[in-house]
Design a protein around this nucleic acid. Structure first.
Length: 947
RNA sequence: GGGCGGUUAGCUCAGUUGGUCAGAGCGUCUGCCUUACAAGCAGAAGGUCAUCCGUUCGAGCCGGAUACCGCCCACCA
């Protein structure tokens, strides 16, 4: 076979098809507005870098579903795009600037140093130049990402690609902001926010992670102003005491009832502050008295509001002590802590110090300890938006899969807090708010306002803040379709049918899309939300650059082929379970691809050998009959090649499938058992895959087709029909066999295509056909007539398989692999013997036997037969002296197993309540099994006694 | 502090509604270069389904408890 290489080389075909799919714009939905649609907007990857394995899993899962839906006749829109990723991109571009300035740095500290230097250079170069660099970065990485996606075979519509900072998209962002502001849902104010002193910006609660650290609980004495004693407060952050403006106790706490209203002197600074009563204080914690620092703690801020306390900021945006910190001004917060503790100790005001495990807030980006600081920010009220978003999920308009994510979503939504949406960054959507330099008024507008709405002053300056990146991504499902214009796309493809994302952005993104979608389109953004797994390394560790266990999708793809990696991911993608990915998996599915390749190679090779009339017929035979699909062709005595192909095929297939009885005579005019069997399996496999994919059980669908292709189609069907295929003759039988094989193979390619788009596209194009040959991805998924399902054939074929396997088994155990012994099969069941006899040729060939003869009734007493489940005994004739000890051991092992099963069944059947309560079919099944086992046991015992 | 998930063959994991479900891949062992494929073919070994108690005629599958492991959320100083 000169043309098709023996070893599948994915690199030689994958890039070609990737290019082809893009160039042909195959995945642009039809303009025809009438048919059913299926839409999904790709979670836009951040332009911060290239795609990782998590993306590859996500894109693979989406692509499988998109190709599947497309092949089921839906008009599919998969809209791709990218996210500007405000804070992440800004940090990365800064780091690049730093790296350029300090190219010789290396080692663990380099990143941090580059970041620091880059930030300095950013401030030096100013926004205009810096943003230019960001755009350059976007162009470069956007290209990389796009190339990666193409290479992975993502069947997206590139003509509709979007970027969250496209002019049109930005207009939608502004529109949303202005409307929310106008409706009073966005407000501006001084509140405690999470401030990252390194990033120099506020971040939302979600961008803060918590880390348990060993710390201390310091007990500090605050003397009463009147000199009569002191009150002890416990704190983990002594440096913040410099900003204390009260001490609080619980009014219900008897210990402190009479101190409320008295005054204490704040140590070190000697400020006189009140003791107040507030329900918030937990009497059981520490001493039951707490210092109150309204400017540096959200709880204290709330207490301060209730009691009208002053707010004294003692830590600034750089996390240094301010002038209000008195003698500690200019120290870092860490230095200040040390100094404060030292000075308190020296003053005798430190009662005790305990070890204490506390949870510190860390900036998710840079791992710096976040400082709760008072600052002027923009907030979005969540309650009014959350309520409909809760309802949409509770009433099932939006379905979240797996189910437990739904609960997590709801729990979070019920306890939602207002969202700080402003960021002190440069890269992102500028907040459309202008400050009047004359009167200080803040004007929110879609366009730059010409005059202040309050004082009519004309000197207005836009605030520097940008929006949290998730504010703009929250609009993704509708802003990508042209909102706020009422576009045709919006009408056809919104709501999206599906959204797929990782669990980590359920709150960041899914929640916001649902809230904003409902708010602005009066409709849900998507009907189903599937939460996919995390890709971990072979040891179930999270992949991370610092651990050095990151697998690069392109690298692994080049090594094993895209199809193999996709299949490896899909086959591990059980909903709700993380994926331990390893080279081993990719390797084993590369073997699968190779298997497919060689099966195709074999089939194509032999189709080429077909007699000319049959070959002419083949192209038409590989066009499924509309509305019916493929079915097995009967092994006709003569094919009438004269008639038009389509009529011919139809005349053959008009007969109801599965209707023919197995008979030994006349087989040539009827469908062969092996054909009925494989088409039946194909019908079943198709159904099972549809069910699995509908439930996002990728692993099940993958396993189903894998097993079918390899262990049924290749191991059995192909081997069975080999003689018909490889010995070309003018015999019509051979032609029918070739057509059936080609049909089965093609149908299997269709089922495989969503998982392995490249190899299936390649092989599909090599099959002869007369219809539309643009792409397998535009053909039907289900190619086989569902009515081909035929349990009787499946059972009969299984019986033959059992016989063959048993014979091979005996041969292997007896060391007879190289020989071709004769065999004998005995049974009372003449129909069984007839079944074997009529398929004798294949049985002999596949089992490696010389001859098979049949005994009606029992096996002769001198034989040592192996009983089969189908109710017959098999024996092989061979010269070799058997080892009676080993043979006895083997039989006894079988015997023991059987006995155990029998006991179990008998116990069950003896149980009256089982008989009365279990469904009849279960009872009947148990009885049938008992009979089978008893029979087999008896025959096994006989074998043993012969030894 | 709350919530969630896991514990099944040497390893990595499947097992949707309780009744041939005790499975797959990899690994191991045996024999084969059988003219599609050695990235292959044909066989084999290997598991009290974490532990205990319950529900049921019947439980990896449902309920409860325990022991490890992991994750998420949280404004208790």
């Amino acid at each position: 076979m000169p043309d098709i290489p023996k070893v599948y080389a994915p690199e030689s075909i994958e890039p070609r098809w990737a290019r082809y799919w893009v160039d042909q714009k195959l995945y642009r939905p039809l303009d025809d507005a009438s048919g059913p649609t299926f839409s999904l907007s790709l979670p836009p990857p951040n332009i911060t870098g290239s795609l990782h394995m998590g993306h590859m899993l996500e894109h693979t899962e989406i692509d499988i579903l998109m190709r599947w839906h497309r092949m089921r006749g839906q008009n599919v829109l998969w809209l791709p795009g990218m996210d500007h990723a405000s804070i992440s991109t800004q940090m990365i571009v800064e780091r690049e600037l730093g790296r350029e300035a300090l190219p010789d740095l290396e080692g663990p500290g380099a990143r941090r140093a580059w970041q620091r230097e880059g930030q300095r250079r950013r401030l030096e170069m100013g926004p205009e130049k810096f943003l230019e660099r960001c755009w350059q970065w976007k162009e470069q990485n956007g290209d990389t990402i796009r190339r990666q996606m193409e290479r992975m075979g993502a069947s997206v519509d590139w003509t509709r690609a979007r970027f969250t900072m496209d002019p049109a998209y930005s207009r939608a962002v502004i529109e949303v902001f202005v409307r929310l502001f106008e409706q009073g849902l966005i407000y501006r104010g001084q509140y405690i926010v999470n401030w990252c002193p390194r990033c120099g910006t506020a971040v939302s609660d979600l961008e803060v992670s918590h880390e348990d650290r060993a710390g201390h609980l310091w007990y500090i004495r605050y003397p009463f102003e009147d000199g009569k004693g002191h009150i002890v407060v416990a704190t983990t952050r002594p440096e913040t005491m410099l900003g204390d403006t009260a001490v609080a106790v619980n009014p219900a706490d008897n210990r402190y009832r009479d101190v409320i209203g008295r005054k204490v002197v704040l140590p070190l600074l000697n400020r006189v502050i009140p003791v107040i009563g507030d329900e918030f204080v937990d009497p059981n914690f520490g001493t039951g008295a707490v210092k109150v620092t309204p400017a540096h703690d959200p709880n204290d801020f709330a207490i301060g509001m209730r009691h009208n306390l002053p707010r004294i900021t003692v830590i600034d945006f750089q996390a240094q002590m301010t002038a209000d910190a008195g003698p500690y001004a200019g120290l870092s917060r860490e230095q200040a802590r040390e100094a404060v503790v030292r000075d308190l100790g020296a003053a005798g005001l430190l009662e005790k110090t305990e070890d204490y495990k506390l949870s510190v807030s860390i900036c998710e980006r840079c791992k710096t300890v976040v400082e709760p600081l008072l600052s002027m920010q923009w907030f979005l009220k969540m309650q009014p938006l959350a309520t409909p978003a809760i309802r949409a999920v509770e009433d099932g308009r939006i379905r979240i899969i797996p189910e437990n994510s739904r609960k997590v979503y709801l729990d979070w939504m019920y306890r939602i807090h207002d969202w700080c949406i402003s960021r002190q960054l440069w890269w992102g959507h500028r907040i459309p708010a202008w400050h009047c330099e004359a009167c200080g008024e803040v004007v929110v507008a879609r366009e730059t306002p010409s005059a202040c709405s309050k004082c009519k002053g004309s000197s207005l300056r836009q605030g520097p803040d940008v929006l949290d990146t998730w504010f703009s991504s929250g609009l993704w499902p509708f802003a990508t379709l042209g909102w706020p214009e009422q576009t045709e796309d919006l009408r056809r493809f919104y709501p999206n049918d599906l959204m797929i994302m990782g669990f980590d952005i359920l709150f960041f993104w899914a929640a916001r899309m649902i809230m904003l979608g409902l708010k602005f389109t009066d409709n849900i953004p998507f009907r189903e939300l599937y939460i996919h797994a995390l890709v971990r390394d072979a040891d179930r560790q999270k992949m991370s650059k610092t651990k050095g266990n990151v697998i690069d999708p392109i690298e692994i793809t080049e090594k094993y082929g895209t199809d193999a990696v996709r299949f490896a991911l899909a086959s591990s993608a059980a909903p709700g379970t993380d994926i331990a990915f390893s080279d081993d998996k990719a390797e084993s599915y590369r073997a699968f691809a190779n298997k497919i390749w060689n099966a195709g190679r074999f089939i194509l090779m032999n189709l080429g050998n077909l007699p000319e009339p049959a070959r002419r017929h083949l192209g038409a035979a590989l066009e499924p009959i509309p509305g019916i699909g493929y079915d097995a062709l009967p092994a006709m005595r003569s094919l009438e090649f004269g008639v038009r192909s389509s009529e011919f095929t139809q005349s053959l297939e008009s007969k109801a499938p599965g209707s023919d009885q197995l008979r030994t005579e006349g087989l040539r005019t009827e469908k062969l058992l092996v054909d009925r069997w494989i088409f039946s399996r194909l019908a079943t496999v198709t159904r099972e895959m549809n069910e699995a994919l509908a439930g996002y059980r990728f692993h099940e669908a993958a396993y189903t087709i894998y097993h079918f292709f390899w262990h049924e189609l290749c191991d059995w069907y192909l081997e069975w029909v080999k003689p018909e295929i490889t010995r070309p003759s003018e015999e019509p039988k051979a032609s029918a066999a070739a057509i059936n094989l080609a049909r089965v193979f093609e149908a299997a390619l269709h089922l495989l295509h969503p998982f392995m788009p490249f190899i299936t596209e390649e092989l599909w194009h090599q099959l002869p056909r007369s219809g539309d040959a643009r792409s397998i991805s535009l053909t039907r998924f289900e190619l086989v007539n569902p009515r081909a399902a035929d349990p009787v054939s499946e059972k009969q074929y299984a019986t033959i398989q059992e016989l063959i396997v048993a014979a091979r088994n005996i041969k292997a155990e007896m060391g007879l692999q190289k020989e071709k012994p004769s065999a004998q099969v005995a049974s009372e069941d003449t129909r069984l013997l007839e079944l074997f006899r009529s398929h004798q040729e294949a049985i002999l060939r596949l089992a490696g036997l010389e001859a098979l003869n049949f005994v009606r009734g029992r096996m002769p007493a001198d034989a040592s037969p192996v009983p089969l489940a189908s109710g017959c005994d098999l024996r092989l004739f061979y010269e070799r002296a058997i080892d009676p000890v080993a043979e006895r051991a083997r039989i006894e092992r079988d015997l023991a197993k059987m006995k155990q099963q029998l006991e179990q069944i008998e116990r069950q059947l003896a149980n009256e309540s089982f008989r009365s309560r279990a469904p009849q079919e279960v009872v009947a099944g148990a009885e049938r099994r008992r009979a089978e086992i008893t029979d087999r046991l008896e025959r096994l015992g006989q074998s043993l006694s012969q030894l």
